[in-house]
Write a protein that binds this DNA or RNA. Structure first.
Lengths: 162, 162
DNA sequence: AATATTTACTTGAACATTCAATTAAAAATG
DNA sequence: CATTTTTAATTGAATGTTCAAGTAAATATT
């Protein structure tokens, strides 16, 4: 049995294709949004003497509670040596504290300090307008749809390996 | 005339709200997708001795043709001194060439070399599977919808800062 | 036309990230 | 139960990014 000829699918969103156009490629828009978003957040964070890596770790700890260094690396999507060094800086800044896990001497547990908790609140306040502006004119259904689509893309992408 | 009482809108996607859940926040998923995507692309690029910044500039030049350093900075969403130095490295690697614009001595024009053009082709080849996998199970309509939503978000975000 | 301002880019120093190697604790194996 | 392997994190060297300051060309102002 010969295979049925399929209707030719558009390849406009496929970078390997000849008729590729970046505007039809979701990762193009993803990068563009991520770029603008990062610049805007960076600018806001500078006001409270913070940056994106520190902010990501603060929010990871706020959402997940006390974490090991490698758990933070997974949630904040950063490399382990990078996280180690950011944590060292954040500890110097008094934003987090660390201790060795009692039942496993290899793991370093990281937790928010009072100052760290306050920083999270400060950030919420200074980024409020940005997020409000970002979703202007978008219904809740639309936001939900966007979340679902991004989540779908996320699960299609390879989980990071060692 | 008094304003009509509005139904209370959910604030689950608003980080400043008390009932915030990161899974309902599009930028959470955006970051997650961006993270996995970057790790995957990074890994693929390493095979041809390239990295994401170089790749972004290669594709900018491929899409836009000869560009000034600051045009590249805009398209690749990077800072000007960063681009200057990446271009210097790429020039050493033989991927691009530069010249001073004839009618304006301040601007540095950057263009792809033969080696740069070949690199673009190599990258297309080695990332083909990744992109195919990324959109697995997604119809063209879905991809289009995702593009539209991301584009909408993009236009809501502030263009630049001074 | 001389001077000031703006634009485009580059540079050096400070800072951040990454890779490869290392330490040290826990778990698995013979 | 000693030894190997695995896991968790850290460190130092190399590399990359960013800020602030500087150069130089183009444009604007007086």
């Amino acid at each position: 049995m010969t295979s049925k000829p399929r209707a030719p699918r558009s390849q406009r969103y496929n970078p390997a294709s000849e008729d590729f156009h970046k505007e039809d490629f979701p990762f193009y828009w993803l990068n563009q949004v991520h770029g603008r978003y990062s610049v805007a957040v960076e600018k806001a964070l500078k006001k409270v003497n913070l940056d994106i890596p520190r902010w990501r770790i603060l929010f990871t700890l706020k959402e997940e509670g006390t974490c090991s260094v490698s758990q933070i690396a997974v949630h904040a999507i950063a490399k382990l040596p990078t996280v180690t060094k950011i944590i060292q800086r954040m500890k110097q800044d008094g934003l987090v504290d660390t201790r060795v896990r009692s039942d496993d001497g290899r793991v370093t547990e990281v937790m928010l300090t009072e100052k760290g908790i306050n920083a999270v609140e400060d950030i919420r306040f200074i980024t409020k307008d940005l997020f409000k502006q970002s979703f202007k004119g978008m219904t809740e259904a639309k936001i939900k749809r966007l979340n679902k689509l991004l989540e779908e893309l996320f699960h299609n992408l390879p989980e990071h390996y060692s």
